[in-house]
């Protein structure tokens, strides 16, 4: 990996991922058959930064953030959050799981239907034996997540709340532990479009008030435009483009990013490039550039004209610098 693949040089790195690999099934070996969900990712996220991790389902974006708190064990490489290495040691993992909090895609499923809202928010406080008056901490967290007056919610059950309110409860529960980073897995995908903005604004507000970082997994580039400082585009377990949001979305360097951008309804006059075929299968990694079987540049013959087709089919591209802090992994 080239040294300039690490994003902008930051003095205050919060999350650092180095050579991370996560594999499922088939003996977890590097050989065939194993699902290479995360297949060599290097990434740094600064304190107070919002990063959008974008890609289709199966690209490993969710697995990557889950591995940041040890929910998926690393096969190779290392991850550190706020100076804490992700290990298999239960005590160290617990400390890590206080500083990094997850937000889930489906707030309905993430709340135990038998627990009241109070219990849902207090659960983390109890697990980590947080000092202070429990009721006070819970009400403060609910209020800061926009559930006002908080007392009205304490004794209610999840099914009595709307989807948006449930997601607020989960965000409140996460923020109650005063984390340094929120790992948000499609935080608004299951919500009505009309209320997504409010939830995103809430998450973004914690960046300003608490200095928290956010790594948001999403397939929605609009979300990235709405809240992210930087965008990382993932394809088949690897980051193929990384850079400041404005740059990546205004001047995408990787054909995959361009295709993703072109199918967002109402972008700008980008010609639609609908990639054919299914979402890629991480158990069958293509040789060469992993994107080449679906790459419009290869399919249109442009790669052949430019004389890079052989490299596309045979050589795995690494992230190279395109402009300040903007890298892409493409032979183009």
């Amino acid at each position: 990996m080239s040294p300039d693949a690490q994003g902008p040089p930051t003095t205050d790195t919060l999350v650092s991922v180095r050579g991370a690999h996560v594999r499922f099934g088939a003996g977890r070996g590097a050989g065939t058959g194993a699902v290479r969900a995360v297949d060599g990712v290097d990434l740094e996220v600064a304190r107070g930064e919002v990063l959008a991790l974008v890609g289709e389902s199966g690209c490993g974006k969710t697995t990557l953030i889950r591995s940041m708190i040890g929910l998926e064990p690393l096969a190779e490489g290392s991850i550190a959050v706020d100076g804490l290495e992700v290990t298999r040691n239960a005590r160290e993992l617990r400390a890590l799981r206080r500083r990094a909090q997850m937000i889930f895609q489906d707030p309905t499923g993430a709340l135990n239907p038998r627990h009241t809202i109070f219990e849902a928010v207090a659960e983390g406080l109890r697990i980590h034996r947080v000092d202070g008056d429990e009721t006070e901490l819970v009400t403060a967290a609910l209020a800061s997540a926009g559930l006002r007056p908080p007392e009205r919610y304490l004794r209610r059950f999840p099914h009595e709340l709307s989807g948006g309110q449930r997601q607020r409860v989960l965000i409140a529960a996460a923020m109650a532990l005063d984390p340094v980073v929120l790992l948000a897995d499609e935080p608004v995908a299951s919500l009505d479009a009309s209320i997504r903005g409010e939830i995103l604004a809430l998450m973004r507000s914690y960046v300003d008030t608490h200095g928290v970082s956010i790594i948001a997994v999403t397939h929605d580039l609009g979300l990235a435009w709405n809240i992210a400082d930087r965008v990382a585009v993932m394809y088949l377990g690897r980051i193929v483009e990384l850079g400041p949001t404005e740059e990546v979305l205004a001047d995408p360097q990787h054909p995959y990013t361009r295709a993703l951008l072109s199918v967002v309804p109402e972008t700008r006059g980008l010609e639609q490039q609908i990639l054919q075929g299914e979402t890629p299968d991480p158990s069958r990694m293509p040789a060469g550039c992993r994107f080449h079987p679906r790459c419009p540049v290869v399919a249109s013959g442009e790669a052949a004209r430019l004389g890079i087709e052989a490299r596309c089919r045979g050589e795995d591209p690494v992230l190279t610098q395109r402009s300040a802090g903007h890298t892409a992994a493409c032979h183009l």
């Binding site: 009309s194 903005g197 409010e198 939830i199 995103l200 604004a201 973004r204 435009w225 951008l261």
Partner: peptide, 12 residues
């Protein structure tokens, strides 16, 4: 996307 008025300003 690309519209500065909605950049970092989610609306709902």
């Amino acid at each position: 996307i690309g519209d500065p008025s909605s950049r970092l300003r989610p609306s709902g």
